[in-house]
Simulated scan of single mutants.
Amino acid sequence: MLEGNFRINILDQSPANQFESGRQAISHTIELAQKAESWGYHRFWVSEHHNSPRHMGSSPEVLVSHLLAKTEHIKIGSGGVMLQHYSPYKVAENFNLLSSISPGRVDLGVGRGPGGLPITTKALQTSEEPGINSFEAKLTALQQFIIDNIPPDNPLYGIQAKPIPDVPADLFLLGTTVSSAVLAAQMELPYVFAAFLNNDRDIMAAAIENYSDCYKRDTVREPNLMLALPIIVADSEKTAKDYASDIVIVRVTLESGRTFTVFSIESAEDLGKQSGEKFTYELQPGSVIHGSKKTVKQKIDEIRYLYNVNEIFAVTAINDFENRLRSYELLSEICWA
C-alpha cells in the first residue's frame, strides 16, 4: 500500500501449523497474495526454506510464477533466493523468464543464509562451480547476468541469460548483519534488513548506518533501505499481545562465530549437532510490533522516521490463517501521512 512516499509490503513464509499440510500452507499463500493485492499492498514476497517443519516455501521462483498468474498488478518476488546453493546463471535465467512473462512486476530478493539446517545444505550443494565459490562472487555474477553486462575479461563473456526481458527483475539483498549491509552498498543494491530474524536493534542501527556511509553518492542509483519487521495488528490490544507472546526466536552461535536464527529449541539443537562444531543458543523474545491499528501505526512511524525508511515488509507469524489475514487487513487500513 502506498500513502505519499511510504509503502508497506508483505513477506510470506508459507507457514503451516501443526494441523495443516504443506498443500494447505501454499494455498494460504496464494489466497494471501490475492487479498494483499485487493488491499493495496505494493509488493508480495515469498521465502525459501528447506526441510522445515514450519515453513513450506522451498522454491520461491516456482511460487512466484504461480502468484504472478493469480494476480494482476502487485509486484511479486522472492524474499529471498538462497544464492549460496545455486548457479547465478540459472537464477538469472529463471527470473529473466519470469520478467519476460510479467514485465515490471518481478522482484529478485537474494539472501546469503542457508534457508535450512546443515544437512539440507549438504543435499543442495552436491558440487561446486569452479571459480564461483563465495557469496560475493555469486552475487556479482547474478547482477551481471540480470543486467546483461558481463565484462570482456570474464571467462563467461558472451553468455546471456535468455530470454532478455524488456524490464529485468529488480535485484535486492536481504540480510541481518553489518557485513551484508556493506556488501549491498558496495554493489549499489537496495538493502532489506530482516529484523524479524535478528531483533538486535544495535546491529540493525549499525547495518543501516554502514549502508548509508558506504553507498557511493555519485552513482545514478540512489540508496534504497527497507526493513522487514515482525508485525501483528488485532482488533484489541490484548489479542495482539497474546499473539505476539507466542513468538520467540532462537539465536544459535557456533564456535566458528557464525550465527543462525531458528524458531524452536529442537531446530537449534539439530543445527548445532549437524554443524559438527560446539555451539550455544539463546532464546529471545520476538520483539514484535503489535497492538491495535493506532498503536501499530505509532510504533512503525517511530521506526521509519528514526531510520528514514520509506518502505517496509510486514512479517506476521500468527498460526491461525484467518487471524493472520485479519492482521494484514487491519494493517492495510492504516492511513500513513
Rank of each mutant, 00 (worst) to 15 (best):
M1I: 10
R7S: 14
I8C: 03
I10D: 02
N17H: 15
Q24L: 12
E37L: 09
Y41A: 08
H50D: 00
N51R: 09
S58R: 01
S59C: 15
E61P: 04
L67S: 08
E72W: 00
K75A: 11
K75D: 04
G80I: 14
K90Q: 08
N94L: 11
L98V: 07
I101K: 02
G104T: 05
V106R: 02
V106F: 09
G111F: 08
G113Y: 10
T121Y: 09
I132D: 03
L142T: 01
N149C: 05
N149T: 04
I164Q: 03
P168E: 10
L171R: 05
T176P: 01
V178R: 11
V192S: 02
D200T: 05
R201K: 08
I203R: 06
N210G: 00
D213F: 08
C214H: 15
A228G: 00
L229K: 03
I231V: 15
I232V: 15
V233K: 05
A244V: 10
L254G: 00
E255I: 00
R258M: 06
R258E: 15
F263D: 06
E266H: 14
L271Q: 02
F279P: 01
Y281M: 00
Y281N: 04
Q284D: 00
P285D: 13
V288A: 07
H290K: 13
G291R: 05
S292K: 12
V296D: 02
Q298R: 12
K299R: 15
I312Q: 01
F313W: 09
F313M: 12
T316L: 07
T316M: 02
T316Y: 05
T316C: 14
D320N: 15
S332L: 04
